[in-house]
């Protein structure tokens, strides 16, 4: 797929641009592609930048205001860069009962950043999130999209250490 020829006038990789070209054809109306497009664009660019908004608006044929209205509604979409590894700790009821808050506090301490902070090296960002659907295996966290469940402070340390090692080895997401 990465052999796609580069498309002129796009900020996205050839693969993603090609995916978007197809995405808008799947639905009875183009606009249905908006939310997935924004999510995939964020995955590639790191956040929903002004340039992402402009290109997505143009691809779908709606105003940038329309796109911003939608972006700001969904909590996964962010308009500022996050860390390479975005650590999302659930503290909702089921996780809370099993130590979710302690995991969050532990991450704050360990990473030295507050909720919604980014480490100075840009490797990690931290966010307290609502239920991620791991209630029976709490406390749980997602790093980017990967689930980490039945966490303890010790296992969380290991999770963070693994990602840090990955970052140092220039590993991907």
């Amino acid at each position: 797929m990465s052999t796609q020829p580069a498309q002129p006038g796009t900020i996205f990789s050839p693969t993603l641009a090609a995916r978007f070209d197809r995405l808008v054809t799947l639905y009875p109306v183009k606009r249905s592609a908006l939310v997935p497009m924004l999510l995939y664009a964020q995955d590639e660019i790191g956040y929903v930048s002004d340039a992402v908004i402009a290109e997505v608006a143009a691809r779908i044929g709606i105003t940038e205001l329309d796109v911003r209205n939608v972006v700001s509604y969904y909590s996964l979409l962010r308009t500022k860069p996050a860390g390479k590894y975005h650590v999302q700790v659930c503290t909702n009821i089921s996780c809370m009962l099993r130590g979710g808050n302690e995991i969050l506090d532990h991450c704050k301490k360990k990473l030295g950043i507050p909720n919604k902070g980014v480490t100075p090296d840009g490797v990690f960002s931290l966010e307290e999130v609502e239920c991620i659907g791991a209630c029976s295996w709490g406390p749980a966290a997602q790093v980017n999209y990967a689930f980490h469940e039945n966490l303890t402070p010790e296992s969380m340390d290991q999770v963070l250490a693994d990602y840090r090692a990955k970052a140092q080895n220039g590993g991907g997401k």
């Binding site: 249905s32 939310v35 997935p36 999510l39 509604y73 969904y74 909590s75 979409l77």
Partner: peptide, 8 residues
């Protein structure tokens, strides 16, 4: 078609 949400 498989559709994705974005947190809501």
């Amino acid at each position: 078609v498989v559709q994705t949400g974005a947190g809501a």
